[in-house]
Write a protein that binds this DNA or RNA. Structure first.
Lengths: 159, 159
DNA sequence: TCCTTTAGTTGACTTTGTCCACATTATATT
DNA sequence: AATATAATGTGGACAAAGTCAACTAAAGGA
């Protein structure tokens, strides 16, 4: 693989790391961290979501997740409901309050995107969008292939 | 701006956040954190680099930066040299040891990229690269325009 | 049955990051 | 020049984020 291509990709990664860090620090508007917001989001997107799903999706430690979920439960943003089939697992649900918070976060996040793109023409915006979809599709396809080949049991270190 | 476009962009952001987090956690191979690696990188890229440049580029707290730089100095990865014109500032340089470490980090980072793209065809890789460059160019151009218009003194919260 | 795996929790700890007050020097204002 | 204001960096005290290892308990096999 060409040195120059690697250079460009790493440059993009630095650029996007910075952009995301600015975005993420803004979530502080509300009294919850990015990771908490993300957990609420994932719970709302999934059916029969369990803690371990989140551990894998978000790539964070089990014990840490356990604590965050406990906090969210204490603050009545989520509820744990024990399952019948497997009593180790708890299904996670947003409470009314949790949903309301997530709505608020979503509105803010949409607003961030609008600000970021503010000033660009529709066709520029669409170019960016298409570019993002290309990156995501290609890399995801590749990841899936990689996992199928290498048979790495749950280790995510070689994405 | 269209709901659907915003959706796609946020989806990309989640996807890329995850990817970068996996990448960044791998830097732990070496005994230095991502931010330290990034600081070494920035110092090597710049001429007459001062702490405050890094504070702004990396968007982190002044006091935190001060401590990191002190640590890097203690470990003899960087040197501070006082400037003549402005005795508040210190120019930062990598030591031999710092350069060697950065070389090692660079090799590892290149390797990460190669792994990530491993299995894709040359034309796919190039599509991704072009996509990245489009995103970066458009968003950077926009940011510069925004700053010129809004005259926000150093606040980075509206990237 | 016994062994292994999976899910989650807890304690103890480290690392990372933030806030505020401060010292020093430079720059702008009058 | 004198004074105010801004920029650069440091240190203390603290809070938040994240890690590691040991553990319980249930599930899923051989």
């Amino acid at each position: 693989m060409d040195k120059e291509i690697i250079y460009d990709i790493r440059q993009f990664n630095r650029f996007y790391t910075r952009l995301l860090s600015v975005f993420n620090n803004q979530i502080l508007d509300i009294d919850y961290s990015l990771i908490e917001a993300r957990i609420l989001f994932e719970i709302s997107e999934r059916t029969e979501c369990i803690a371990n799903n989140l551990v894998q999706e978000l790539n964070i430690d089990r014990s840490y997740m356990s604590r965050i979920l406990r906090k969210l439960e204490r603050e009545e943003l989520i509820e744990k409901k024990s399952t019948i089939m497997d009593s180790r697992k708890n299904f996670l649900y947003l409470t009314k309050k949790g949903e309301e918070l997530l709505d608020k976060i979503n509105i803010q996040s949409d607003e961030q995107i609008k600000q970021l793109f503010n000033g660009l023409t529709d066709s520029e915006i669409n170019e960016i969008r298409i570019s993002m979809m290309i990156i995501k599709e290609k890399l995801e396809k590749n990841k899936v292939r990689g996992e199928a080949n290498e048979h790495n049991n749950g280790k995510i270190n070689n994405t």
